[in-house]
Design a protein around this nucleic acid. Sequence first.
DNA 1: GCAATAATTAGAATTATTCTAATTATTGCT
DNA 2: AGCAATAATTAGAATAATTCTAATTATTGC
Lengths: 152, 152
Amino acid sequence: MIPLAQVTSDALSQRLGESGLRSTPQREIVYDILIKRRDHPTADEVFARVKAELPTISLATVYNCLEALVQCNLIRQVNFDRGPTRYCPNLHPHAHFHDEVTGSTYDIDLPPGIVEQLKAQLPEGYAVSDVEIMFRGKTRERRPATVEHTTR
Amino acid sequence: MIPLAQVTSDALSQRLGESGLRSTPQREIVYDILIKRRDHPTADEVFARVKAELPTISLATVYNCLEALVQCNLIRQVNFDRGPTRYCPNLHPHAHFHDEVTGSTYDIDLPPGIVEQLKAQLPEGYAVSDVEIMFRGKTRERRPATVEHTTR
DNA sequence: GCAATAATTAGAATTATTCTAATTATTGCT
DNA sequence: AGCAATAATTAGAATAATTCTAATTATTGC
């Protein structure tokens, strides 16, 4: 298994604290769920998985937890067209590939420099906080070696 | 005024026909509206503008027309996070810059080759139909007339 | 000119997300 | 430890964008 950039419970608590947020059992579990299976789940899917461990959690809390984790940069949101927002704990610079047939989303690693090259296209006075790159298409049927995971 | 890549009424009709769709007054007006002011309006905004010319049009029809135009590749959809879908008649390869402060969206021209360079990052067997690049950030305050969008 | 097909319309339905108000938990003081 | 202040959670209601539905109107091919 490839070692994944993740964060211990203590570190999570610290990161939340830095953004003026508290660590709670709900937030820890939501983060764990995302780390355990990195398949870009929707809030609803996270809700379903978390309920297995903490049946009393509410959907509103899942949204709150996801927002908290986004806010302190532990996870990223991913949107494809009009679909529901998906959540991604991969913090390395990467693009997303959305398979239009299966609905799966894959992470695509980007070589260093290419994002800077893109930013260089911006006119004077455009201050970028974030760049997002998304591919749409389909994957040839295969058992992916390099690929992260499948949704649904 | 810089000449804009656009399509005559006849050509519009032809392009629709190629996709098995009919040309209608509603579709022509919706397309005209997008060409006239290329500021990435939402379906609601398009609806409001079209109503000035054709007061009987319905929102459902605007959605239908926009979908038809997307389908025959005369316009593109742009999505930023959870915001409503916006529509863009710029067919040249370009990225989008979304100003988080004002909510405006600007076209960013891309030099040839960079999209290919991105596609080259994909593993074997990933067939791309479309690439989308979006910047999020803010623009230094300037006269809005010059920056509404880049034109070709 | 007529049947078949497609597009339009108004409004209802759906979906994802956000908001609200009440409750519960946590923190920082003394 | 006790207590006020603050933050988080919860269930359910509200919202916003989009899609669906069923009836009507327009267009096309014969």
